[in-house]
């Protein structure tokens, strides 16, 4: 196992080492000590390795991640897992705003709460938040799934495209063109499958979730809908 203590090494040195990993590397276990809220930890990794960060991180941890399995044993600052392509990021604490922003693939799990704009402009990522999410979550969400065990703030799914939202608790308000949709059996099955694949099955009853998505009324401009914006 490779260990980087960020009181002794820099984030640059850590990321440079992670970026040199080849597909056939045997160096698949990485431990990051004393992250102390540093930004861009494990950003731009493209390797099937496990990275355990022992503490809280700053902005953009795991940004543009490909294939890596990153665990943050603490909380994460703004934009954790932004634009991630694949792999998995698990934040054991809370996540600040724009968690999983523009993510194109992979899985982001937040054990605590996520702040505003969780999943903003998401493009295929799956996000599971076991606590609450803040306002404007899944804003302009294009694809992927956002699952919230707790509550959602104002303007959920504002201007949403084809992202699919599942929220168990109350929703403070829906954004433009976002509507509640029936939670049919196939949706429950989809949610069960997602939770099982992410190791979160049997923690919640999928029957308690409500489903939200696009009304698709704003997909092509119509002056009579101008008031919706």
């Amino acid at each position: 196992m490779s260990t980087f203590d960020l009181t002794k090494s820099s984030v640059r040195e850590l990321n440079a080492a992670l970026h040199t990993l080849k597909d056939d590397t045997n160096d698949t276990l990485w431990s990051v000590l004393n992250p102390n809220g540093e930004h861009s930890i494990a950003a731009g990794v493209d390797a099937a390795v496990a990275i355990n960060v022992q503490g809280s991180v700053g902005y953009f941890c795991g940004g543009m991640n490909k294939r890596a399995n990153i665990v943050v044993d603490g909380s994460a600052g703004q934009g954790v897992g932004e634009n991630m392509m694949s792999g998995r990021i698990h934040v054991k604490g809370d996540a600040s705003q724009s968690a999983g922003a523009t993510g194109r693939g992979g899985l982001l799990i937040v054990d605590g709460n996520a702040s505003a704009r969780c999943g903003i402009s998401m493009k295929g990522i799956d996000i599971i938040v076991k606590g609450d999410v803040g306002h404007l979550s899944a804003f302009m969400g294009q694809n992927g799934r956002l699952v919230v065990f707790g509550e959602a703030g104002e303007a959920l799914g504002d201007s949403i495209y084809e992202a699919r939202l599942f929220v168990r608790g109350p929703v403070a308000g829906l954004g433009a063109d976002c509507i509640e949709k029936p939670m049919r059996d196939e949706h429950k099955a989809e949610l069960i499958e997602l939770l099982a694949a992410s190791g979160q099955d049997h923690k919640v009853d999928v029957a308690e979730f409500r489903r939200y998505g696009s009304a698709r009324k704003l997909y092509n401009f119509n002056i009579d809908n101008a008031g919706a914006y």
Binding site: N15, H19, S40, G44, Y59, Q78
Partner: peptide
């Protein structure tokens, strides 16, 4: 924030 974003892009591209 932008300063941090720029540093992230620099990190990703070494």
């Amino acid at each position: 924030d932008l300063e941090i974003k720029i540093n992230e892009l620099r990190e990703i591209t070494d």
